[in-house]
């Protein structure tokens, strides 16, 4: 129940006074309530829990996270620099 997965909002409409949308999860379309993400637009990706979008995903942050992580974990991975690794930070 808590395995909220991201999906792409492909349609937005009103139903019984609620902001609703169709969300595509890797090819499976489900209806979700968008009342808690009033800024949502078609094309946005949302995390959906039990039929409600709880958060919109930020493309910028996603890209930055991956880039930053690559930088951190790939530093010193370069074969030429093997044996010449920078000392571990804060060994204590």
């Amino acid at each position: 129940m808590c395995l909220g997965v991201p999906g792409k909002i492909i349609e937005i409409y009103q139903a019984q006074g609620l902001k609703m949308g169709k969300v595509d999860f890797s090819g499976v379309t489900r209806e979700a309530c968008l009342e808690h993400v009033p800024e949502a637009e078609v094309g946005d990706y949302a995390v959906v829990h039990v039929g409600f979008a709880i958060s919109l995903l930020s493309e910028e942050e996603a890209q930055e996270t991956i880039n930053l992580l690559r930088e951190i974990v790939e530093a010193g991975e370069n074969p030429e620099s093997a044996g010449n690794r920078p000392p571990r930070e804060n060994p204590s």
């Binding site: 129940m1 019984q16 829990h49 039990v50």
Partner: peptide, 20 residues
Amino acid sequence: IGFETTAPANVMSVLQAQNL
């Protein structure tokens, strides 16, 4: 039931029941 993740859904169902 649930943690904070399902609360937005559960409270909205109550508000909607009230509205309807």
